[in-house]
Design a protein around this nucleic acid. Structure first.
Lengths: 331, 331
DNA sequence: CTGTTAGCGCGTTCAG
DNA sequence: CTGAACGCGCTAACAG
């Protein structure tokens, strides 16, 4: 293993000079920079991240907290998209990302979580899929001992940013389109919402309520808990008497469509997310596509900015209205 | 941040003693151990992993190399299962896992990859989804500068283990069951195989060849490249004249089933993997379920053993024959 | 069995 | 603009 000292010797300078060159410090003569870089290339030197973070009071690492459904055989596509986007961006930015599942923090107090993260050299956190019930995480963010970026949770403070698409607008867009496209008047709309205590669920619901006022239709709301089965049950009960079924997620939309098929009635259904799974449900439908990979990448980007001293803020990502049909995936 | 020195002072011992207690060294009196542990609890001390790995010549971290299809919107379920299993096990074992995508290593030489990993404090590697074309990875393993565990690639040397289900046997099992269950004689079987240069593809193919000899049926083989579209095309061409269609993956099985539906003929189809997606394909079929999460966990376990001095070996994981029907996922 | 001390590889003052 | 020296938190000899 070649160290900074080897490089210094090779370039005929002091170790500190090499360090400064590597970290792009000012006030180094062009000539020295060139000599050092040459030595680095010749010796194939890569700074040791471990030593680096230890020495620099180790605040560079980023914890990526997420909540995959590790109990079931199915671990969802969205989580993987998030991970991929974050990991790739972290690689680009040369920061270390520490994936942490919520389950690893279970029955830990805020203090314990903080010491754990500190012991890992974590300075910033990105949280995906936090709900109002995650009390420990809530406090973690509020205490501002780290720089935080929340995905899909609208909380901002001096050291906390959030990133999300405009959930309310997106829900309105996709629902409006589905309702307008429907031949014949849509007087009665069934909305299958998400979780009771979810941030995004509430925003999407607000969007539907607004739309109902704007377009003046009857809206009946039932909580599907983001479960396909619940959505199926709800649709079996209330699907027939409504003209259009709007779901707060694709998975629930699949459940609703299946129920309609079983009942042998047809009503337009729309979803939310744009997951590939939809391509396998057989039917067509409108949905909102969020670019999860890009959202996660932006989250990592933002936490790096915060670590560099930026103020917390809201970042709204664009969404896209799509009509899903049969897709081919090559794995 | 409380350090080992604080603990030492609190317990009235030397830092090295604390270190020894924390790392479960022998030759420490019960009494001292108790006193130290007490101080640790009181101060809520968590050893700093960064400093630890720096001091101990940093060989503890494990790189988890995998190859998700980051280009498409769909990033597959199997990859996420692997990640979850590995991450969870690493948490349990208190080792750090460094997820690395193949794409991050592109156009790097073996030497560069090695220095990169070294600079990250990596001592062991787990590789998922390596193919015969991944020349750099092949050499990385052969050079034995790290402890390696390969998933689904049968290579063993002094510092390399591999983990896999018995691909040949599993393929035989699922195909035999599907063929035997079929009413009427199955004289002609279509096998849609995987990639040309894949390790597992070849083993599965060998299984089919053996089975054809054992059960004495005609076998026609076509390479589906693990692509749903290719499988569909192949089935459209050759599906009708065969009695049973055996596919080397679930995704291809979906493609084959779709083709049969379009052609309005029925033949039994079987897949391989047991992914949840299958539940959305609508039809029923036999498949092999591998527990990817457990496989990844075992891989991490094995690399830790290798790092502790164990010899490379082959680890065969159990597989399960299942009949897939409609499933409900709660996301 | 326990304590002292010298690094691990790097960042960072502070003299020169 | 450069370099010597100290320390990050911990482990690993070596003394005692």
């Amino acid at each position: 293993m070649t160290t900074i000292r080897d490089v210094a010797k090779r370039a005929g300078v002091a170790v500190s000079t090499v360090s400064k060159v590597v970290n792009h410090y000012p006030n180094i003569s062009e000539d020295t920079i060139r000599r050092v870089n040459e030595a680095i290339r010749e010796l194939n030197f890569v700074p040791n991240t471990i030593a680096s973070s230890l020495s620099s009071k180790q605040a560079g690492r980023i914890a990526f907290l997420l909540n995959p459904n590790t109990q079931t055989q199915a671990i969802d596509e969205i989580t993987m998209q998030y991970m991929a986007g974050a990991l790739l961006k972290a690689g680009e930015l040369h920061v270390e990302l520490l994936p942490v599942f919520f389950s690893m923090l279970e029955d830990k107090s805020v203090e314990e979580v903080e010491t754990y993260l500190h012991s890992q050299g974590v300075g910033g956190i990105v949280i995906c899929g936090m709900s109002k019930d995650d009390y420990v995480l809530q406090r973690l963010v509020a205490r501002e001992h780290f720089k935080n970026v929340l995905v899909d949770v609208p909380i901002v403070n001096a050291s906390t940013s959030y990133i999300s698409v405009d959930q309310k607008q997106a829900q309105k867009d996709v629902a409006r389109k589905t309702i307008m496209d429907n031949q014949g008047p849509s007087r009665d709309v069934l909305y299958i919402s998400g979780k009771q205590n979810g941030y995004i669920s509430e925003e999407r619901l607000q969007g539907m309520l607004e739309l109902a006022r704007e377009l003046d239709f009857n809206l009946s709301v039932h909580s599907g808990e983001f479960s396909e089965r619940r959505a199926r049950e709800i649709t079996l009960k209330y699907g027939e008497v409504n003209d259009v079924i709007v779901c707060a997620s694709d998975l629930m939309a699949i459940g609703a469509m299946r129920a309609l098929t079983d009942m042998d009635v047809f009503h337009p259904v729309c979803g939310f997310d744009g997951i590939t799974l939809m391509g396998y449900a057989g039917k067509q439908m409108n949905t909102v596509r969020q670019n999860f990979k890009e959202i996660a990448a932006e989250a990592v980007n933002e936490v790096v900015k915060l670590l560099a001293g930026a103020e917390g803020r809201a970042v709204i990502m664009p969404h896209e209205l799509v009509r899903l049909e049969y897709m081919d995936i090559i794995v």
